[in-house]
């Protein structure tokens, strides 16, 4: 039997105006971060509905990270302030249900912070890898 090497699948929601550009910059500068980080572009970090996060876990993500402009820099002025409150409440709830809190994260990454983007992803992927597969929010029907 062949044992598949475990590599965490990470979904990164990146806002169009800062973090997605930050990811671009990381690419332009040839900084490396794991290929298993799948970026989903959203107009603003506050576009991320808690359901998106749960759906990502359902579809096989082992970690979900939301990246947006730094507080005060949101293209829509205040979107990321709402993100901050919502995700604080949601992450705390996930923890309350016994789901590993290290699997979810919010980071602020500006368009100039390509290096921060790569470093964040490397570090997050490592953290998630050390947790192993997502079992507590998995949906067996979606397993390949």
């Amino acid at each position: 039997m062949q044992v598949k090497e475990y590599k965490p699948l990470i979904v990164a929601f990146c806002c169009n105006w800062c973090s997605y550009a930050g990811a671009d910059l990381a690419g332009n500068n040839r900084l490396s971060y794991p290929a298993d980080v799948k970026i989903i572009r959203v107009p603003c970090s506050c576009r991320v509905n808690p359901m998106f996060i749960l759906r990502a876990f359902q579809r096989g993500a082992d970690g979900v990270i939301i990246c947006g402009c730094h507080p005060g820099d949101c293209h829509y002025t205040s979107g990321n302030y709402y993100t901050r409150r919502r995700m604080a409440a949601l992450f705390s709830m996930l923890d309350f249900l016994g789901i590993e809190k290290e699997r979810t994260r919010v980071e602020w990454v500006s368009a100039a912070e390509g290096a921060k983007f790569a470093a964040t992803m490397n570090e997050f992927a490592e953290t998630v890898a050390s947790l192993g597969e997502n079992k507590r929010l998995e949906d067996l029907r979606c397993k390949r």
């Binding site: 302030y81 709402y82 901050r84 409150r85 604080a88 992450f91 705390s92 923890d95 979810t104 919010v106």
Partner: peptide, 17 residues
Amino acid sequence: APLVDYTTEDLEPGEVF
């Protein structure tokens, strides 16, 4: 309601732990 409100000083989601 608190979740449709904010202040610039709110804590970060990571800090809740």
